[in-house]
Computed example of a mutant assay.
Amino acid sequence: MTGAADRAQRLRLVPGRFAVEHLPAAVAPPNGWIAQVRAPEGLTVVREVVEHQSGDGAAGLWRALYGGDTAHGLDLPGMLAALLEPLAGAAVPVFVASTYHADLVLVPEADTERAVEALRAAGHTVD
């Protein structure tokens, strides 16, 4: 059994702002994507939002936290839960894309400061 200290992670706030989009008929993701998941109902894409793009309201923008610099094995239980539990406790919505090395946790841009505070209070380091 792993304790909370065993699940403490070093995260970094990824530069940029991101959109999470559902593309029902997409064959390929648009330029600038950092994560994609294909499901029967279509393609979900996380892409960086460039400042000059129009139609991206602040409510739809996300910031990304990633712990890839201190990767953990796939066989280590509770690593994602260790991030999501404090965020849920702080009422911060999330969208997650997992990689082989770590999890990319996106939070609404407006909730970034609250998310970072909740993660730090739970023992995580956020650069």
Rank of each mutant, 00 (worst) to 15 (best):
M1D: 03
T2V: 03
D6M: 03
D6E: 12
A8C: 05
Q9W: 15
L11V: 09
R12G: 02
R12Q: 08
V14C: 02
V14H: 03
G16P: 09
G16K: 14
R17Y: 14
F18I: 12
A19K: 14
V20P: 03
V20M: 08
V20S: 09
E21P: 08
E21S: 14
H22I: 11
H22E: 04
H22Y: 12
P24E: 13
P24F: 15
P24V: 15
P24T: 15
A25G: 09
A25D: 09
A26E: 10
A26N: 07
P29S: 13
P29V: 13
P30D: 09
P30C: 11
N31H: 13
W33Y: 15
I34F: 11
I34G: 06
V37R: 06
R38Y: 09
A39R: 11
E41H: 15
V45W: 13
V46Y: 07
R47L: 09
E48I: 12
E48Y: 11
V49T: 10
V49W: 14
V50I: 12
V50Y: 13
E51R: 15
Q53R: 14
D56L: 11
D56K: 13
D56A: 12
A59L: 09
A59D: 14
A59Q: 12
L61D: 03
W62Y: 14
W62M: 08
A64N: 07
A64M: 13
Y66H: 12
Y66N: 02
Y66G: 00
G67H: 08
G68D: 07
D69K: 10
H72D: 01
H72K: 05
G73E: 02
G73L: 04
L74Y: 11
L74V: 05
L76S: 00
L76W: 02
G78C: 04
M79G: 02
M79H: 08
M79T: 06
L80A: 05
L80N: 01
L80V: 07
A81M: 03
A82D: 01
L83A: 03
L84E: 01
L84F: 06
E85T: 05
E85M: 06
P86C: 13
L87A: 00
L87D: 00
A88P: 02
A88E: 03
G89N: 04
A90I: 02
A90P: 03
A90D: 01
V94K: 05
F95A: 01
V96A: 07
S98T: 08
S98G: 09
S98F: 04
T99Q: 11
T99W: 13
H101M: 07
H101I: 04
H101Y: 15
H101L: 06
H101V: 04
L106V: 08
P108L: 10
E109H: 15
A110E: 00
T112A: 04
T112W: 00
R114N: 01
A115E: 01
V116A: 09
E117M: 11
A118M: 02
A118I: 00
L119N: 00
R120F: 10
A122E: 05
A122C: 07
A122F: 10
A122L: 03
A122M: 05
G123Y: 15
G123D: 05
G123I: 05
H124T: 02
T125Q: 06
V126D: 01
V126F: 10
V126P: 00
D127E: 08
